[in-house]
Design a protein around this nucleic acid. Sequence first.
DNA 1: TATTTCCCTTTGAGTGTTCAAAGTGGAAAA
DNA 2: TTTTCCACTTTGAACACTCAAAGGGAAATA
Lengths: 226, 226
Amino acid sequence: MASRTVEDYIKQIYQEQQPVPGQLVSLGRLATAMEVVPGTVTTMVKALAEAGLVSYEPRQGVRLTPAGEKLALHVLRRHRLIELFLVQVLKFDWSEVHAEAEELEHAVSERLLERIDELLGRPGFDPHGDPIPSAAGEVAQPRLHPLNAARPADRGVIARIADQQAEFLRYATARGLVPGAEVVIQSVDVPGDSITLLVQGKSRTLGRAAAAGILVAWQPEAAASE
Amino acid sequence: MASRTVEDYIKQIYQEQQPVPGQLVSLGRLATAMEVVPGTVTTMVKALAEAGLVSYEPRQGVRLTPAGEKLALHVLRRHRLIELFLVQVLKFDWSEVHAEAEELEHAVSERLLERIDELLGRPGFDPHGDPIPSAAGEVAQPRLHPLNAARPADRGVIARIADQQAEFLRYATARGLVPGAEVVIQSVDVPGDSITLLVQGKSRTLGRAAAAGILVAWQPEAAASE
DNA sequence: TATTTCCCTTTGAGTGTTCAAAGTGGAAAA
DNA sequence: TTTTCCACTTTGAACACTCAAAGGGAAATA
């Protein structure tokens, strides 16, 4: 039975390597993300490798083994179902459920999770637009792209806010940049490091760093421009 | 911030000393209840005393300080609100929520607890009939009823011996009729002016006059038969 | 009074997680 | 090629919690 700490490391590794599945995640990144000193990560990663959850290449990084990925999806399933439950049943705002779910994901039993899943009608996506893995560990994976990689005239639907910090979520919400919103790129100002787009009838300009935190499913003609 | 383990010990001490508030709880009892070896309890209790949560009299036992009681009520509030939430919102059976709440009570934030409390209409009692402490730490005394007013199949816990005469107290104690003992009414013999009940695995018959001196907190389904 | 017994306490050690600080490997800079 | 430097690893130690097993106190029994 994986401890809470193990679950947290595995989930973090999954999320760090998510953009390019199978990619090595450096221990430094992990140390920053987990808010511990590098030595702690080295120790922990060796234990995870020992447990068969990751493969570890010293001085290179780690990646999840199939067993690790299975565990990661299991934890994410809990996390995302709980987030949706908090929003739909307990009327929390989607910007504030992340921290709450972070705790609860380690405390709910399989039975309770099953009840929640049932009550919510076996949903496929959480309030941030992230897919909820099935109990069997399958994830619907829409192909998403960060907004900062957009080109003028691209058109699509916001699928997910990758930057989960409460402050950023409030910022995005205030500007209508929420999952499901349709966006059209108006211009990309490379020297100005900003991007201007149309969302819900309003023109918005945001920096590329912020744009990188917003993932969009482009409509076919745009997606073809990869 | 009290750790999960500290919260569990404090809650247990509260419950062990509940029948007679202020009473010393032996470390042996605590070791059995917490399912650890006695040495562990001695170590832990010293730490709790150090933290100002209990007063510890070596070889005698422990009792909660006001700070410890406050923490205990706080934990019980979480536990009981969660139990009620699981029963009312997630349609769990009241017999199966205890273990679930045991985990969740350490994971819910104040904010989430407040939402639950509000959603449930600020209830006073959990599904087992135990009072839910208020956020301020006030507990409603469960309504007590003399044993002579019981009906067959009623089930509850002895809360107080109203008849304080030494002879009666000895009589009651000898038969296991002490605060905290669970009783199940087997039969009520009106013409015979007696009542038969099961206590600590033994069947006991006592006259109605004696029964009147014993106060019981009935469990909900029984309480409904008032 | 002497002995036994039952608890309780002490001691020493282990696990899981963490940090501080010193040591090292290898890529990049000189 | 040599040096520098940063990221990573190692080492030693701490903290919270736990156990096994030996030691001690006080009440019960003889």
